[in-house]
Amino acid sequence: MSYQTILLSQEGGIATITLNRPEVMNGLNATMRREIAAAVTEASAEARVIVLTGAGRGFCSGQDLGDAKSLDAADFERVLREEYEPMLNALYDCPVPTIAAVNGPAAGAGANLALAADVVIAAHSAVFVQAFARIGLIPDAGGTYWLPRQVSFARAMGAVLFAEPITAEQAAAWGMIWEAVPDADLAATVQARAIHLAAGPTTAYRLAKQALRRGLDNRIDEQLALEARLQAEAGRSHDFREGVMAFLGKRPARYQGH
């Protein structure tokens, strides 16, 4: 599939999706939302890890306010349900690990797009801004779901009401993201992390993602039952047998992803 607003490349089991509208700080329009959802689905069929990043000096500025329908309040619900939800669900339900490499500002829906990834690695120059209140809106694109779970209710409320930039280092300290690294080290750090995941037990990663996400809302009895069921599935995998044999043989494991 050819894309107009993103770039999709794949090498060594690592797929990289680059938001490619640098002239508007990779602002999200209808085409980009559709293409991100399609690219995640396409890449996950073959790749063992997906990296999402932005072209130019920013990750994503959120909704492109220059888009013709951006200020049409009558269209808000339709756009969120029909365009944002498929994009976010594609990331949330992706069977392989996803990494958001935040190379610069991530604002509004752009910040929440990054937080939908499994792991967020940000350059020190990056900031996360729940900018919605600045234009009289509430957080969307999953922000009201992720933030209270990641940074506590109190910090989520402050981030939303004050709409102040949260630095990458602050986000890491709060638990919003996995790590913040110097700008010069971002590409190498993300590459090393992606290589590690691409060589890992893909089935176990997929099942662990399911368990962790369900655990956000399950009761303890529900979660223990889910762990037992998913662990049984993991235990039937080739990767489990390979991992045990590699441990016993004192050699690196050669996981095949099934």
Rank of each mutant, 00 (worst) to 15 (best):
A173V: 02
T5I: 04
R241H: 15
A100T: 01
R57I: 08
V49T: 14
A106D: 03
C60A: 12
A109N: 14
N29P: 07
M25P: 04
L52Q: 05
G110E: 05
I177Y: 00
F59C: 12
A45M: 01
F128E: 10
Y84A: 10
P22R: 12
D217Q: 10
A45K: 05
Y84M: 11
A234P: 02
V127P: 06
P182N: 04
A180R: 00
D75K: 13
A199N: 13
E23C: 10
Y255N: 04
E82Q: 15
G54N: 09
A168T: 03
A188H: 10
P182E: 06
A234Y: 08
D118P: 05
F162A: 14
A73G: 10
Q63I: 13
A74D: 09
D239N: 03
A211E: 13
G56E: 07
E42C: 06
G200W: 08
S70F: 14
D185K: 04
V119K: 02
E77V: 09
S2M: 12
A173N: 08
L8T: 03
M87H: 02
Q191R: 11
S61W: 07
E42F: 10
A168Y: 09
A232M: 02
D183R: 00
R81Y: 05
H238F: 05
R241C: 11
Y3S: 02
I99D: 07
F128Q: 12
F132C: 03
W146S: 14
M245F: 09
P95D: 06
N112T: 10
E85I: 08
R34I: 03
A154D: 12
M32I: 08
A208F: 15
A204D: 11
G54K: 07
F153L: 11
V120H: 01
A163W: 11
I135S: 09
H196D: 15
A194N: 03
D67T: 15
N89A: 12
Y92I: 06
P182V: 03
R193G: 00
D239R: 01
R57C: 06
C94W: 04
R206F: 10
L230H: 02
R57M: 10
A159W: 08
R149Y: 06
A15H: 05
D185Q: 13
Y3G: 01
Q210E: 15
T189R: 08
E164C: 02
M157V: 15
I14C: 09
F128L: 13
R21N: 00
I17K: 01
S70C: 11
A55S: 12
A117C: 15
A184H: 11
F128H: 13
R213S: 09
L212R: 08
L137C: 06
L71N: 04
A73V: 11
A15M: 08
S237I: 02
R21E: 00
I6D: 09
N26A: 08
I135L: 09
D221Q: 02
A74S: 15
L88T: 01
V96P: 04
V120A: 00
Q150I: 00
L7A: 06
F162C: 12
P148R: 09
V160P: 05
V181D: 07
Q210T: 08
A15D: 11
F162Q: 15
E179T: 08
G104A: 06
N112Q: 14
I177D: 00
T16Q: 09
Q130S: 12
A163F: 12
A43T: 12
N112L: 12
G12L: 13
F132T: 02
G158T: 07
A39N: 06
